[in-house]
Design a protein around this nucleic acid. Structure first.
Lengths: 207, 207
DNA sequence: GAAATAATCACCCAACCGGGTGAACAACCA
DNA sequence: TGGTTGTTCACCCGGTTGGGTGATTATTTC
């Protein structure tokens, strides 16, 4: 199973590296980072990715929306716009190129991944491709047999990105209890942090 | 200027209250919280909102997607789905009803507001309505004349929701410096927290 | 009856975050 | 020259977060 390749088009190095880092931590491969439209076109041609993350306000000859049009015409790839809270005018142009989604800056790791996966998933459905299922409900429960029911319940919420306090509220226990369950989950899954748990789950689901 | 009314359709009280709290803190008014599809239909008819936030996995007779279809047929309102990371199957159904956006659970205040505003803005553009501009670049600089250039730069980043540490990295100073600038901005804008600053900015922009 | 498992929680700690206080230095200006 | 303004920073505090240790109680299993 090979990782999905994602092209990042972003002229702000800090953000580009940030996105890259988040993707590297999971089941994505950053095929390249393009800092302007020329690089983006080049990469699309020579190293076609599976998805593209596009800064909508690119300070180059052609901006993100121009590149998006190119993608729509030449390739059928899902793409997401990196956008800011405030640029409404640009968004007016953006909706015409039918992006698969928006990632609002600033974003966190989870938001980025979720948006990307929703985008790829939707796009694939339209194209009648099939992608590895990411639904934990679909995952064979006995793959995680060492976990108790309560632990399995919590592991799903962790996988959904919930904070310990949110989980605690949801299942009506204290945060301390959630932490203890997490501790036991870590023991059973041979992990030390929630991120490692999520990674393990994805490996299992990808079979 | 009256606030935009938002209907929340969510059967999980914790989440509903959370969304409601976030909206109350800003320029939105929660017209109602509907805990099932019947309440949602009732509210749409008797107290028509300006936008709807819909839990996609509603545990009632009709789920969020059914309600979305109803909205599309009977009203022309922007709506967003509250969705979870993992339910890919539901998302397959969701895309057919053309939601104005997705809010991935868990979400933070900023993500929620940004998504909602993008949705309303896009929807309004399509309908050729006009909405108050939210672009801070467009805002008359002299409305914030007491601010120095540096402070204005920082205020924009704060408005974009960036953390102090992120701002510090971006403008190549320490977090402490950012905090001091913020302190001075608070003095000049008669605010105590970044949220109050954002609110002031919006009031100014709404003129 | 003893041992293992499950579920609950309190407490500690290190890290981080945002806001507050105080301060240094440079530039400008009256 | 002396006051104001702008930019930079260190330090403290209170709150929250995630992970670690240890403990209690009930249920199940041998």
């Amino acid at each position: 199973m090979s990782k999905l390749k994602v092209l990042i088009v972003e002229d702000e190095p800090v953000i580009a590296e940030n996105v890259s880092l988040y993707l590297d931590n999971h089941d994505f491969e950053v095929s390249a980072i393009a800092y302007d439209s020329d690089e983006a076109f080049e990469q699309l041609k020579t190293n076609t990715p599976d998805a593209v993350i596009l800064d909508i306000n690119l300070e180059s000859e052609k901006d993100g929306i121009d590149i998006a049009q190119h993608i729509n015409q030449q390739y059928q790839l899902p793409f997401l716009f990196l956008t800011s809270y405030s640029d409404k005018n640009t968004l007016d142009r953006a909706k015409n190129v039918k992006p698969s989604g928006y990632i609002v800056k600033p974003f966190n790791e989870r938001t980025l991944l979720a948006s990307l996966e929703i985008a790829i998933s939707n796009h694939a459905t339209e194209k009648n491709h099939d992608l590895p299922k990411l639904s934990i409900e679909k995952m064979n429960r006995h793959l995680l047999s060492p976990l108790s029911d309560r632990e399995f319940e919590i592991v799903q919420l962790v996988y959904d990105g919930m904070r310990n306090t949110q989980i605690a509220e949801k299942i009506f226990v204290t945060v301390n209890t959630v932490k203890t369950h997490l501790k036991n989950i870590y023991l059973k899954l041979d992990a030390n942090t929630r991120l490692q748990v999520i990674q393990k789950l994805r490996e299992l689901m990808m079979k």
